[in-house]
Design a protein around this nucleic acid. Structure first.
Length: 192
DNA sequence: ACCGTGATGTTCT
DNA sequence: GAACATCACGGTG
């Protein structure tokens, strides 16, 4: 069951928490790949010094200001793509960074795309899972209610919260408990 | 196990 | 021209 638009139109913290345990799928020409989401982070618009939207709208963050259920991708450190799910209604710039997956479908294709063989490390980080799923800037603004990339319902898992990773520059916002992880998962970007 | 470092290019100041 | 929501690798315990 593909998640409906309504799922994404809620506030970013709720969407980030509820995405834990759901399955994200890409269906690209090379094949289908997917994984269970085990780690997310919420980025909360104008009140969040860690968010790309903190200093207002730019060309890059345009889609961030749109309605929930679309994909925000960006290049980080010149080499890696990060995949985000836009949340909330139009003009409320909130989004959820997908930080780690437990690989499910298309594991061989994901290994090929990554050039790595280790299952544990296949999708254990935002750059890694984007590469494994074949997410590129071509998917900027893609509709999660479409067929190329979407999220399916899944099992409800116990969730823990922690501060977000690598946002030390954000002052007090660096301490907010806006990272959500599946308790006991072996597939996180860092060990809990 | 942890720690330091280099790779790389877009975006924003 | 600096900063950056990262990763892989090589070093040392």
């Amino acid at each position: 069951m593909k998640l409906s638009r309504e799922f994404y139109l809620r506030d970013g913290l709720t969407v980030a928490r509820e995405l834990i345990g759901k399955k994200i799928v890409t269906n690209l020409p090379e094949g289908v790949t997917s994984g269970i989401i085990v780690e997310t982070e919420a980025y909360m618009g104008a009140i969040d010094a860690a968010a790309h939207t903190y200093r207002g709208k730019t060309e890059r963050t345009k889609i961030f200001y749109g309605a929930g259920g679309f994909v925000y991708v960006y290049l980080i450190y010149g080499m890696y793509i990060c995949t985000n799910v836009v949340a909330n209604v139009e003009n409320v710039p909130e989004a959820v960074l997908i930080r780690a997956l437990e690989p499910v479908d298309g594991i061989e294709l994901m290994k090929l795309r990554r050039g790595k063989n280790n299952l544990r490390g296949l999708c254990s980080g935002p750059g890694k899972l984007s590469q494994a799923l074949g997410v590129t800037k071509n998917l900027y603004g893609a509709d999660l209610c479409g067929d190329k990339i979407f999220i399916e319902d899944g099992e409800k898992l116990p969730v823990l919260t922690t501060p977000r990773i690598n946002v030390d520059y954000a002052g007090a916002a660096a301490d907010y408990l806006w990272r959500f992880i599946a308790a006991n998962s072996k597939f996180l970007s860092k060990h809990a």
